[in-house]
Nucleic acid binder design. Structure first.
Length: 364
DNA sequence: CAGCCGTGGGT
DNA sequence: TACCCAAGGCT
């Protein structure tokens, strides 16, 4: 007994219980063991699911692992995290990137503690209202933690589904269609396992390059594979590269201390610690940048380190020249800046570009 | 809604 | 090497 669903004319989905069942059978045999994932048949902890989903936004499983362990050890439940200071959360997050996630993580924990008695909402709509939880994450938590019948669509699932149906329209325009098609892979139950099965399939079998179609549980029903051009999916609109920006960073030592400041709360590297520096602008030269050095009484001699620091952000590459200076013991920090011991720099909320700049300036 | 928002791994 | 990619959200 197979029923036929017609979606947008072109996509005729021949489906019984077969495809969702094949997927779940495969998952039961090949599921990945991940720290935030419940054992087979056991209920997932919403706090762990949520924490992992936030960390996994645009970030690989391997990268997230140590951060998840650190957070869970220090803050074992959402109430503990809700009582933590934002500064502690930012420090623990340093190095993981996309720092607004850390601010929203903290804000979300506070909201769950204050407005929901420390219990996560168990509906997609309720979850969606919380900071840092968008359409994807709301569906993911609903499905994985509460077994609500909904299908989140991440990058893995976009790839799997666009291949399964040979979707020609490019992303992101075709997101709604892919969402509809992905939902056809939901069976009558085990929504969370279905979603995680597709993610595991995308990360281990239906990979961006050289997918292992021979091992795929859905391989006899894959439109792209039957055409032989599975690697060309998903289609994507071309994105433009950013323009190179240049700037200077100033490494000022006062004995065994370093001069730092805190960046503005919003925008690039929001709320993170940095050494003083020039603006980062396209077409800026070294002299313009040096003119933006901090005012320190007695400092007349900046030493220009040879070489440059390069860093690539999502939307532009950056080149920083490094200037160093040593100042007298009682030199005051300029307005808005402070001295921190070099020995405790590891505990600061320093983004990687600043760690690179400091390492270069201090020869470490 | 398209641009903004990090970083490390894989090829 | 120089790309691409990753369990996206916010404005």
């Amino acid at each position: 007994m197979s029923l036929t669903i017609v979606t947008k004319k072109k996509f005729v989905v021949a489906e019984g219980a077969s495809r969702p069942a094949l997927l779940l059978d495969w998952y039961d045999r090949h599921r990945r063991r991940l720290p935030w994932r419940a054992a087979a048949g056991e209920r997932a902890d919403p706090y762990r699911v949520w924490l992992s989903e936030i960390m996994l936004q645009q970030t690989g499983v391997k990268t997230v692992g140590p951060y998840f362990a650190k957070f869970l050890a220090r803050w074992p439940d959402v109430a503990a995290l809700g009582r933590a200071s934002l500064d502690d959360v930012l420090r623990m997050w340093a190095g993981l990137g996309y720092y607004s996630r850390a601010r929203n993580l903290h804000a979300c924990a506070v909201a769950v503690l204050r407005d929901h008695g420390g219990i996560f909402p168990d509906t997609e709509e309720g979850l969606r209202q919380l900071p840092g939880i968008g359409p994807y994450t709301a569906k993911a938590i609903a499905a994985i933690a509460f077994d609500i019948r909904t299908m989140p669509v991440d990058g893995n699932i976009e790839r799997v589904v666009s291949r399964l149906y040979a979707v020609e329209e490019p992303l992101p325009q075709t997101k709604p269609l892919i969402g509809e098609l992905a939902s056809t892979l939901l069976g009558p139950s085990r929504a969370g396992d279905s979603a995680q099965a597709l993610m595991d399939l995308g990360s281990s079998i239906c990979t961006p390059k050289k997918p292992a179609c021979a091992l795929c549980p859905l391989n006899d029903d894959c439109a792209a594979r039957s055409r032989g051009d599975q690697e060309t999916f998903p289609r994507k609109a071309p994105k433009r590269a950013g323009t190179l920006r240049r700037g200077a960073a100033f490494i000022v030592r006062r004995g065994d201390e370093l001069l730092v400041r805190t960046r503005a709360e919003k925008g690039l590297l929001g709320g993170m610690t940095e050494v003083p520096g020039s603006a980062w602008l396209a077409g800026q030269d070294d002299k313009m940048a040096l003119n933006q050095a901090p005012e320190l009484n007695g400092v007349t001699c900046w030493h220009r380190k040879t070489g440059v620091i390069t860093h690539v952000f999502t939307h532009f590459p950056l080149e920083l020249v490094i200037y160093t200076a040593d100042v007298a013991t009682r030199t005051r920090a300029p307005e808005g800046m402070r001295w921190v011991p070099i020995a405790t720099l590891a505990d600061e909320a320093l983004p990687n570009v600043m760690r690179k700049a400091i390492a270069h300036g201090l020869d470490i």
